[in-house]
Design a protein around this nucleic acid. Sequence first.
DNA 1: TTAGGGTC
DNA 2: GACCCTAAT
Length: 326
Amino acid sequence: MGNADLRSLAHLSDVAWDDIAGSVVAVDAHNWLYRYLTTTVKWTRDEVYTTEDGEEVANLVGLVQGLPKFFEHDLIPVFVFDGGVTELKDDEVEKRREAKEKAQERLEDARERGDTVEAARLEARTQRLTPVIQETTRELLSLLDVPYIEAPAEGEAQASYMARTGDADYVGSEDYDTLLFGAPYTLRGLTSKGVPELMSLDATLERNDLTWEQLVDVAILCGTDFNQGIRGVGPKTAVKEVKEHGDLWGVLDARGDHIPNADRVRDLFLDPPVTDEYEFDPDIDPDLDAARRYVVEEWEVDEGEVETGFQRIDESLVQTGLDRWT
DNA sequence: TTAGGGTC
DNA sequence: GACCCTAAT
């Protein structure tokens, strides 16, 4: 299922920042970071975020520019990092790797032609969350006292679980898969301009007259990150047939079709590896000086590029935080 | 990434 | 209705 298929089934509505103020948002860290990373690479000169040793830490710029959005709207983010990736995702991972390789080739072409605009666009597409990016992101979050946790497997699954238990009010992700992982409410668009979009699981199920399990079955029939769907079956057909035959097995029997690993994919959504072994303190009290030193001195990021971001964090978090006690 | 348009 | 392509962002 290209995500567009799930979008067509999802119940989405605009939401006002005021309505979600004070909420805890379990953020799919990979998804969030990747967006800020690519935006930074696309719009910022390489020198700004490259050390003398040639290490690129555009993630640090992205973090400093992206985090204020939460604080200014009085949202408490809990970043959820991915753990191991299931081999069911191998095909999808391979596809993404190939797409990156193609982008890399086109990037080199564009550079030779001297097409800097196209090069910047393509450079963004070749970004990977390298070990250095993973580590420095966690370190900066620690210095800023922003909570984060480690998922045993998919970050989206863990974040969705936290929203189900009530430890988080929302999942923050641009993906529609959070519906399949059972997240009651997902906020999309936290990384873009404008108001966020609220995606509701209950409203989605109601509008399509499906159970959660049936929605997962629909997605599997259309195809997910973990399996290929059935050719010629899109969301409309899948919904109709799942209702007609009850569940995925009924549909496959009736069609005389087979989807490899369908049972495992189904389990992955309905009962994924998640953990209760986490804790986080929603009271965020950053050490801004240490964070600045880390970014600007230790990782040699141009001060001018991050100063506005740090100021926004200071004004939205530290200063209002003090106000609360006075 | 997503919206729109064409075609099977 | 599904899928493919293109354009715009």
